[in-house]
């Protein structure tokens, strides 16, 4: 029976490894999951390093040519690829590098030796390989991780929410942050986190990326209504979405 369990491996690229930590934080849920899966490679949690995996859970964005090589190799081995967390799904925080001219980051980090470290603009992993399941968020939300893993095991598609955080936030009956003079990215951000940050007195930073079809014109009106500044909002937006933000940025500025 044991050898019929699908073999899972976890890999990290450009990221903080916090989403892998969330997997460990699954706690008893992880123990229950282990009834159905075998973990063969998970640097942060086990010492085993096998490469006969069926499902590869990939955390982090792509930022070097070596990353691309490694990622393509993982795709070749895995039957199923899961993008774990904001860096893997939308580029995440480290994509702020893209906002500066090329070379700046290398120089700041490595000084004169910067040119020895080849680097690329940060991109989410689906720019290079086909992704089968996405788990959004920074960090990923435990309930959603469990839900996606169950879908993988049941051979089901995971219906990623395609409605904004406002929907969940209203259901939680939070007082709207715009009414308190704060610009929150909830109206254009993909839900699924249960308005996690707003429930805890923070704004939404759009760590889950945009809904498929954000209303950029309308978002502009909202800022006008509440007397908020476009630049400030775009700055918040670029925290996580500097990769995907370009198009949004252009659309919102063109009027």
């Amino acid at each position: 029976m044991k050898n019929k369990k699908p073999k899972f491996a976890f890999f990290d690229f450009t990221d903080c490894e916090g989403c892998q930590l969330q997997i460990v934080n699954l706690n008893t849920v992880l123990v229950e999951l282990l009834e159905h899966i075998e973990i063969v490679n998970f640097r942060e949690a086990t010492s085993e390093r096998r490469n006969d995996y069926d499902v590869a859970v990939v955390e982090g964005s792509v930022s070097t040519p070596h990353d691309i090589e490694r990622l393509v190799k993982i795709r070749r081995q895995a039957k199923t690829i899961v993008a774990l967390g904001a860096c893997a799904t939308i580029g995440g925080v480290n994509a702020v590098k893209n906002l500066n001219p090329p070379g700046i980051a290398q120089h700041r980090v490595y000084g004169d030796k910067g040119k020895n470290f080849e680097t690329l603009p940060v991109k989410p992993i689906d720019c290079f390989i086909k992704v089968d399941y996405y788990i959004q968020g920074c960090p990923v939300h435990l309930n959603e991780v469990a839900e996606v893993f169950k879908c993988i095991l049941a051979g089901k598609k995971y219906d990623m929410p395609n409605y904004p955080v406002c929907m969940e936030c209203k259901m939680n009956e939070n007082v709207c942050l715009y009414q308190k003079g704060q610009d929150c990215l909830g109206p254009v951000t993909r839900a699924g986190c249960g308005s996690w940050c707003i429930n805890n007195n923070n704004i939404c930073y759009s760590c889950r990326g945009l809904v498929d079809n954000p209303a950029v014109d309308a978002q502009r009106d909202i800022l006008d209504k509440y007397g908020l500044k476009l630049d400030e909002m775009l700055a918040k937006f670029s925290l996580y979405s500097a990769c995907g933000g370009e198009k949004y940025d252009q659309e919102i500025k063109k009027r």
Partner: peptide
């Protein structure tokens, strides 16, 4: 429709 941001607040409340 042009002004609507599609947040769904109107129907939720």
């Amino acid at each position: 429709g042009k002004r609507c941001v599609g947040c769904g607040n109107c129907t939720t409340v």
